[in-house]
Design a protein around this nucleic acid. Structure first.
Lengths: 245, 245
DNA sequence: GGCGGCTATTTTGCATTCATTTTTTGTCCT
DNA sequence: AGGACAAAAAATGAATGCAAAATAGCCGCC
């Protein structure tokens, strides 16, 4: 039998008794969470078929709840469902990525604006803390630590917006590009890195002054620059990753 | 047999052979579209149960594709799924509405920003056209016409952003509040109306000058004001509409 | 030897069926 | 009479079964 999930050689394992012990009442709910992670983590190559049968065995369930989860993931934009031809991991074109980054930029820009209305001094202090932490990683050229601190800063801003709807939407879009971000961020140029640090200082400054529309602008530009840095280096390996001879 | 869809006395009709003749290849896809409309149009009271069985008969299908559609609608935030207790039309609290309006404001603000980068003179002219049309409705106190022209203006701005992802997200959130908007808009005060007209002129002005961040600000404020106008009058009939003695 | 058409197998889409859980109804007891 | 409990009815959640479509394998043909 020829596996339909190609090449990777990665054996299909059910996310190994998921680390985060969240639990869903319904089966389809759990499957949804697990399958989403499975896709987001990149266990299935871009554009590859997602055979129902195999996933059913992998999760040890019947096709009904799995198909329900697939429909939801399709609605979220992570996979696409071709009529009578099954589900495929959605292949994001460069254009798609640009669009996604811009929407993320818009959401963060909004988050900043809203945060200015409600953020407390303590929250700002916490973000400053993260900022210094990030600066330390920057000095030590610790990309991974830097990336994490960076992410936490942005999440803090979103949290300070006091808008669960926004937070959910943000998480959703973040999930869609996570696959790409993993690979993209490690290609960041040194120069861009320094630039990003300066931008972050401006962000913090605007936040302290609660300058809503200014912060909104800065955040948008910051994310726009991020988009450039993340996408330009992609070049053309857009088609099939495994296609390179 | 007592119908679970209460009170309204509205007989369940299958969206009367849907006017828009869009067609989906798959059954669940069509059901999704029809059911979404059915809910958005307010055929089911807030918080009421959405009985699978009844809907199946109504659409003439089995439960499988219907349940798939329900899962998607739940993911979209239109309904909520209580474990073992079926689907309910999601009841939006006042806070939910505020959040939704703010997110919409953020998206439109983003749309304006992006539109400044790519909009053509022809598109601006078309929006001006709509603006004058809307002004006419305003003068004639034609609320319905005004509302439609207004909506088309905002849609035009979103379209000019050249971002399908944004467009989709926008449509999604718009759908969630449409139920409320119908009732909310008719309560608009005269004064707010005039204010909105002025804001629209400022929008047009900024758009002509391609002043991205300025337009972004104006659009956000415009939507924020809309939010106030739409929500304040809601007062307290937030709980159960049918609860008033 | 390559290509096009035909059949067999797999896979998808939906309906149906089965097992639980919830909700309702009826009855009994206080 | 009212409330609590219990059994019946209905609804939900998931599995299985079946028809249609797609993929692949195969053979004949050019």
């Amino acid at each position: 039998m020829k596996s339909t999930i190609p090449d990777t050689g990665v054996p299909i394992t059910p996310s190994a008794a998921n680390g985060s012990d969240r639990q869903e009442a319904s089966l389809h709910g759990e499957i949804l969470l697990r399958l989403r992670d499975y896709v987001v983590e990149g266990n299935i190559p871009d554009g590859a078929r997602v055979p129902e049968r195999q996933l059913c065995e992998m999760f040890g369930i019947s096709r009904t709840p799995l198909r329900e989860a697939l429909k939801v993931l399709a609605a979220e934009g992570l996979i696409e469902l071709l009529p009578n031809r099954g589900a495929r991991v959605r292949q994001l074109s460069q254009r798609d990525l640009e669009e996604l980054f811009d929407v993320m930029a818009g959401l963060e820009s909004l988050a900043g604006r809203l945060a200015c209305e409600a953020i407390t001094d303590e929250e700002i202090a916490a973000i400053e803390q993260l900022h210094y932490e990030m600066y330390g990683h920057y000095l030590h050229r610790d990309m991974h630590g830097y990336f994490q601190a960076n992410q936490r800063i942005h999440e803090s801003i979103v949290a300070a917006a006091r808008n669960e709807t926004l937070k959910t939407a943000y998480a959703n879009f973040a999930g869609r590009i996570r696959r790409v971000r993993y690979s993209a961020n490690f290609a960041r140029k040194r120069q861009r890195w320094a630039e990003a640090m300066r931008e972050h200082e401006a962000i913090l400054d605007a936040l302290r002054r609660r300058a809503a529309s200014e912060l909104s602008d800065i955040l948008f530009q910051h994310l726009r620059n991020k988009r450039m840095a993340a996408i330009e280096h992609l070049g053309e390996p857009q088609g099939d990753v495994s296609a390179a001879p």
